[in-house]
Design a protein around this nucleic acid. Structure first.
Length: 113
DNA sequence: ATCTTGACTTCGG
DNA sequence: TCCGAAGCCAAGA
């Protein structure tokens, strides 16, 4: 069990990220809200940044509110992982959130529209 | 306690 | 659509 408040929040954030289905994405802010931590989008980013390589959580399914990859170095890797799951990128490198955004309860289902 | 950082977000122009 | 500014907030130093 998490001992500190910090570990507690970290665990909740990762739990949410772990729920994002293959082929769908969520924004940092969305993950924060669903983890019960509104206004903590940046915390989500920090947690993912410090994520051990061994951790299997689908960190690549988290993008910013503009539908773009926030990772500076390494964006190619994240993009490739998403593409491999069927997530299409626009010419400007953006993901159509209206189409790929994950909403709890949709838990699977192919992207529509 | 104070100041800086940043895998963020929203709002204007 | 593309910035820049402002708002936000936990961590580090």
């Amino acid at each position: 069990m998490p001992r500190t408040d910090r570990d507690e929040r970290r665990a909740r954030i990762l739990a949410v990220v772990d729920c994002i289905p293959k082929g769908r994405v969520a924004s940092y802010g969305q993950v924060a809200r669903e983890a019960g931590l509104p206004r903590h989008a940046r915390l989500v980013g920090r947690v993912l940044k410090d994520l051990p390589a061994k951790n299997p959580v689908p960190w690549h399914r988290v993008v910013n509110s503009a539908g773009k990859i926030s990772l500076r170095p390494g964006s190619a890797r994240q993009r490739q992982r998403l593409a491999r799951e069927g997530v299409l990128f626009s010419r400007s490198g953006r993901i159509d959130l209206a189409r790929y955004r994950w909403t709890p309860l949709d838990d699977d289902s192919e992207p529509s529209r």
